[in-house]
Nucleic acid binder design. Sequence first.
DNA 1: AATTTGAATATGTCTGCACATATTTGTCAA
DNA 2: TTGACAAATATGTGCAGACATATTCAAATT
Lengths: 233, 233
Amino acid sequence: MSTAQINSYQAVQAEIMKRIQDREWPPGTLIPGETELAETFGCARATVNRALRELADTGILERKRRAGTRVALNPVRKAVLDIPITRHEIESRGATYGYSLLERQRLAPSPAVRARLDLPAEADMLHVCSLHLADQRPFQLEDRWINIPAAAGILEAPLDRLSANEWLVQEVPYSHGRIHFSAANAGPREAELLETPEGSALFIVERTTWLGTQPVTFVRMSYRGDYSLTTEL
Amino acid sequence: MSTAQINSYQAVQAEIMKRIQDREWPPGTLIPGETELAETFGCARATVNRALRELADTGILERKRRAGTRVALNPVRKAVLDIPITRHEIESRGATYGYSLLERQRLAPSPAVRARLDLPAEADMLHVCSLHLADQRPFQLEDRWINIPAAAGILEAPLDRLSANEWLVQEVPYSHGRIHFSAANAGPREAELLETPEGSALFIVERTTWLGTQPVTFVRMSYRGDYSLTTEL
DNA sequence: AATTTGAATATGTCTGCACATATTTGTCAA
DNA sequence: TTGACAAATATGTGCAGACATATTCAAATT
């Protein structure tokens, strides 16, 4: 059986996936080398390389130099999660966005925040709490700490009109960050603000970002229990 | 100022990131074309292309043919989430893995499951409930529905020893899937099994997978409230 | 003024080649 | 048997050149 001319990396990917799904190459199989595949598909090795590299990125294949490429035995599939600005998330659901600033205070970090950001007790920070609304209903409660020296201009930002989320994204770059997803029971304050019964389950997203070694911001975003984050894989 | 010879795509990425972080290229900036960058960096266009393409994949840049490449104004950053097998997740935390099968029953799908998988009421499914333990303590409650025609051999699988999770990953390929993350309050049964108070917040992951148009499985995984999912960006 | 058409252009991708690098495997010596 | 070292090899990456394709912009037409 000879394979028809396959000359795009997507076509190569599709063919590889087909062979895996048909169990022609079951998990653990060592598949032919790039050179050989390029020959059988009638395309350049670079094309095969890109196809295989991307499949390896998603966790479907495992590649090692000299050892070759094999179908992942215990695939650690990688899902790509979009992290949009809250306003965009709300608008993309077809709802009208609302925002209200609840608190804005310059103060020293709480111990929990200090530990997360690895900052001294006397750090100069801005604590901002705000509520994001979708169609006038509470959608997300945002509790944010901003490292003032790392976010020049934040003290002048019009946080009563624009969420810190949006201001930071446009004004303060970051090099890397970490996100934690978890669940928690609503406390009295959260319950009231999110208009949900006290004790009801909230979906929690905590994000910390740095610019180099300098922490920029830590934010805890609480969503009502009916929220759900979705991704494809 | 002339840039030193930059001749690896990672070096190009680093240089681009540096210029963005230094606000030399603030959000919204239209950056030079690939040809020009290749010239200034003293490398091939293909190298610049790969660097820019990957940065666009993570949401830092936005590219459009003919229009050029610009620094994302409202970056929808993309975080890559690892989806490991539960056993591996537990073991990678340094805990010993335990597993117990709670229920295994061949029956027609519940309405909720039927709606999710778009299956007829008389579909032939296997319902499996099991508990994953970390160091003898409940870690995850797995409630799974398997579409028997799509998972040949599942009826013979030794689900008392091996979790359906692991068996499926090795035996039944899938082409795509969807994951939902949310939070929910523990019901009486969940609370008892997870050894957590009734009503406490649980972290919920629901995953559906297909092979082509045929649904393969739907799982609802409940984690105790102290669980947290982490990703870097 | 509005619409269609067409040229210009930046990215998208493929090719064929070369060399780099990690890792395995085999060989030889202690 | 064990350990050190060298060759073999599959992937990783770079380069120059070419053509494909989407999109913009401007000119020509209605």
